[in-house]
Structures are given as C-alpha cells and as structure tokens.
C-alpha cells in the first residue's frame, strides 16, 4: 500500500484547517457557552434532587462525561454528509470519482488532516484541563490505551454512518433535512446530550443494541471506568468492532448500488 498518497491528503487537510483560524476561535467560544449552560443546568438538577449520586453518577461524573462528549463531537464531526451532498448537487463529484482512489477512501483521508488539527486544538487541551480541574477523576492507566483504540473505532463507525446518510442524498436532493435527522438521532441515542445511564431501563436496553452508543458512550465508559476488568473492556471494544464491520459493509454496499444512479447536470 502506498501510504504516501494518503498522507499528502492529510497534509493538505491540515493546511486547509489552519487557514480558518477565526472559525476555530468562534467554535471555541460557542462550545464554552454550551458547557456553561450544561454546567448550570446539571448543577441545578443535582441541587434540586437532594441526592449526591443519581443512577450511579455524581455531579462531577456527569459533567466530565458531557464535557468530554462535546470535545469528542468536535473532534469527530466531519460534515461528510454536507460534503457528499454538495459534491452531488454541484457536479464536483465527477472530478472526485475519476481520481485514482476510491471516493470513500479519498473523502476519509481528506478529512484526516482536520482530525490532527482538532486533536491538538480541542480534544487534547480539554482532556488536560479536565484532568487538572477534577484532580484525577480520570484514572491514568491502561484505560487511556483502551480509550484511544475505542476512539479510532468510533471515528470510523461515525464515518460509515455519515457516508451511508450522504449516499441517501443521491436520491433525495435534500441535504439539510437528511443531515439534521442523522445528527439528532446520533446525538440523542449515543448519549452525547444526556448520559445513557439516565435513560429509562427499557430504552437503555434498546439503545445498547444500536450502533450509536459505540460512538460516544463506549469510549467515554472505557476512559472513566473506575476498575476496568479485561472482560468488560473486551465486550465494549468487541461490540464496536462488530458495529464497525456491519456499518462498513452496509455503507459500502449501498454506495456501490447507488453510484450508477448519479445524474450530474453540467458540473
């Protein structure tokens, strides 16, 4: 495998991301505001419940979970649905298809640069800040390794889902509607807005059988796990691996079937 051609896409992606420094600042401000709202909301919730621990989570557990979920979201969000949808509408996709690389591979690697930038700009700093502020609420040990593995799988599952949803745009000519539906489902059912521990039991059991919790809940559970047993860790990562394979197969097959459907006007 010629890795060089992929890495050149990564480099281009890094340079592109660094062009838009202003937007990074505004995204940062936006996230800060979001976290302030989340902080006060959950503080009020815990204050009025009168309990220290609810569903096995303390106030600081919940807060760390939600802060890191937000950081993960910013790290992973690729807007691939928009990219595919716009490429189809504008006809640019024709140029991408004749590249000497599969489209889904090309798209993934062209985003890899922004992963690198986002890692150093958001995920890593957030992690350090949380570590310092909470005085070791995050155990530093093997769980970090599991977390990294889990995040890599989460990124790929997320990409597969995005790619699948983007393919739907071939048929519908609607980007906004499709994308918002995907975003709502993923954010709610992955536990990024409310930790899954708070869900009523029946819903929680259903959610565990869906691929979405593998995106946010799985890596965060591994990271914050107090006493990680090898068996539990294996189950979490194994589930992610299975979901990765399933989503990969489905999104690939769907793309293969749909590709002949493309009609490009001009372009």
């Amino acid at each position: 495998m010629n890795l060089k051609k992929y890495l050149s896409l990564t480099r281009a992606g890094i340079m592109e991301s660094l062009q838009f420094r202003m937007s990074t600042v505004i995204i940062f401000v936006g996230n800060l505001l979001y976290l302030i709202v989340v902080y006060f909301l959950w503080k009020a919730i815990y204050a009025s419940s009168g309990q220290e621990v609810v569903n096995g989570m303390t106030f600081s557990d919940t807060l760390i979970y939600l802060v890191l979920a937000t950081a993960l979201f910013n790290f992973m969000e690729m807007y691939a649905v928009w990219e595919i949808g716009r490429a189809i509408q504008s006809g640019k996709i024709v140029l991408d298809l004749i590249k000497p690389m599969k489209y889904r591979t090309y798209l993934f690697w062209s985003y890899s640069g922004s992963f690198v930038v986002n890692f150093f700009a958001t995920l890593f700093p957030t992690f350090i800040v949380v570590c310092f502020v909470t005085h070791g609420a995050i155990p530093l040990g093997l769980n970090l390794l599991y977390f990294v593995i889990s995040v890599v799988l989460a990124v790929m599952i997320n990409y597969n889902i995005d790619f699948f949803v983007g393919t739907i745009c071939l048929y519908t000519e609607s980007i906004w509607g499709i994308n918002i539906m995907k975003q709502v489902i993923v954010l709610l059912l992955s536990g990024a807005t409310i930790p899954i521990a708070f869900f009523p039991e029946t819903i929680r059991n259903i959610v565990y059988y869906l691929p979405f919790q593998s995106i946010y809940n799985a890596p965060l559970t591994l990271l914050l796990g107090k006493s990680p047993e090898l068996k539990d860790t294996a189950i979490v990562i194994g589930t992610q691996l299975i979901w990765f394979l399933i989503t990969y197969a489905i999104s690939r097959l769907f793309w293969k079937i749909s590709l002949p459907q493309i009609t490009v006007n001009g372009g």
């Binding site: 419940s49 906004w176 509607g177 918002i180 539906m181 489902i185 807005t193 409310i194 708070f198 869900f199």
Partner: peptide, 23 residues
C-alpha cells in the same frame, strides 16, 4: 424531508426533557 427533520429535532428536545424528568 426537511419538515420531518425539523419535527425530529423538536421531538428530540421533548424526549430529552422526558428522560430528565424521569430521574
């Protein structure tokens, strides 16, 4: 699709309140 998407976001807001107030 956009209308359904819009209603989806609204239902999600509703559901998150429902989950919160279950606890």
């Amino acid at each position: 699709i956009s209308t359904i998407g819009m209603i989806f976001t609204n239902i999600a807001g509703f559901v998150s309140f429902w989950i919160l107030f279950r606890n």
